[in-house]
Design a protein around this nucleic acid. Structure first.
Length: 175
DNA sequence: CGCTTTTGACCAGCGC
DNA sequence: GCGCTGGTCAAAAGCG
């Protein structure tokens, strides 16, 4: 077990739970099905992900606003780990435009492609300046569903995979 | 045969 | 205005 989860918000704007998703939202399934050790959870944006779902997901783990890195160490004996995501700086600008529900998970995993209950099709790969590791772009292969996810390895600790989900599934998970 | 992956090119936004 | 960077497209190849 030990799905150690860190949850913290990136944009720090609003946390209104006034706009919950449908109770049967597919993300609920996906979060429950997450197969790996989830070390961090980052909410990059507001509403669409029901925080109730998240709480059931983290099942009692920390649900703080900021990383304290006091749990990660238990994961693999790795030393304390601090986040330096700077998404906070620019997300406010982005969210004005189009970015809706954006959630990032930081997962301790050797593999980058995890079965989260949805079917993904890779559509791009990019080397990013911030990291020596490539960033992979995936799109949900279900027709009409425009959810995307971006997967990249943590530049500081390659044992961790950062998965960012953008959008909301319009369908239940396939599994 | 249909779907996925790969990969270079293209495009748009942003900072200087 | 130009260059850099991140994100997407699309054609070709690969795989089941």
């Amino acid at each position: 077990m030990c799905a150690v989860v860190h949850s913290f918000r990136i944009n720090g704007v609003k946390m209104s739970g006034d706009n919950p998703k449908a109770p049967d939202s597919p993300e609920n399934d996906f979060t429950k099905q997450w197969p790996s050790e989830l070390s961090e959870y980052l909410n990059l944006d507001d509403d669409p992900w029901s925080y109730d779902d998240l709480e059931s997901f983290v099942s009692g783990h920390a649900f703080s606003h900021k990383t304290e890195a006091n749990e990660v160490g238990e994961l693999g004996g790795s030393s304390t780990h601090h986040e330096e995501f700077s998404i906070n700086d620019g997300i406010n600008e982005h969210e004005k435009k189009e970015v809706r529900d954006r959630v990032a998970f930081k997962t301790k995993s050797e593999i980058e492609i995890m079965d989260d209950g949805f079917k993904w099709r890779k559509y791009g790969k990019k080397m990013v300046k911030n990291s020596p590791n490539p960033r992979n772009y995936y799109r949900c292969s279900v027709e009409g569903c425009s959810v995307k996810k971006v997967v990249e390895r943590d530049k500081d600790d390659p044992r961790y995979v950062i998965t960012t989900y953008v959008g909301t599934h319009t369908h239940p998970s396939y599994s």
